[in-house]
Design a protein around this nucleic acid. Structure first.
Lengths: 113, 113
DNA sequence: ACGATCGTCAACCAAATGGTTGAATAAGCT
DNA sequence: AGCTTATTCAACCATTTGGTTGACGATCGT
């Protein structure tokens, strides 16, 4: 468990990798597609993706010559729980947090009609 | 903001540092005290603490020759928000998450009478 | 069968990370 | 004043990280 927190937080600490995760929020994508918005080499992106896979944050399925990447948001749960269990937001009084999210307009559904 | 996510997640990715944070959950502590449970040198712990301070996760106040370290859980908020905004738990339906925390017995108040 | 596309591998590199030791600074104790 | 405690500094070291390039194996389209 400690090991997984290590790898998850470490995976999340790189902006390129966080961007990749955000892209996968939209849709499953191939590695080449994921590499498109970046200026760095495909190899570099491939390595980043390997790190995300090792952390369990994304999964891959090879269809033909293309490797489809899929977000695995459950992997964030351990980390979430750690942070919550940490006491910064009292999970028994999550209303505050919810209100905060809406304030910041960061709730994923905050702009769904 | 991206920068702060970098430094926060990176700070959290080390088990020594997470342990230090957990210790500070109990009480404010001096650096020497924080170093006690570890086998590594005081200098090493001092460096870890510097990293936590830079990430905003703890603050320090020097009284006399002793530097008291205090948890700053608010710093975790950006990271929390990122993870939530990420969609793994729908903040508008947090009941699931709440239930999960209680299941796992990880809610900080789960054992408060 | 051939050329283009998808992705990885191997080798290399610079910089960052996590640790060490020994000395230095600063404050407290007697 | 002199010893002790608290913390940092400086220099060093090994390993990891994040990137590069060039070659390679697989698969697709024609």
């Amino acid at each position: 468990m400690t090991l997984s927190l290590d790898t998850i937080f470490s995976a999340l600490s790189d902006p390129t990798r966080r961007t990749i995760l955000a892209m996968l929020l939209e849709d499953d994508m191939a590695i080449t597609d994921l590499a498109l918005p970046f200026t760095m080499s495909l190899t570099a992106i491939s390595k980043h993706i390997t790190i995300l896979v090792r952390a369990g944050l994304i999964s891959q399925e090879k269809r033909g010559r293309v490797k489809w990447c899929k977000l695995e948001p459950d992997a964030l749960r351990d980390a979430s729980v750690w942070m919550f269990a940490f006491g910064q937001f009292d999970p028994l009084h999550l209303d505050d947090f919810e209100r905060f999210l809406e304030q910041e307009n960061l709730a994923p559904n905050s702009n769904t009609d």
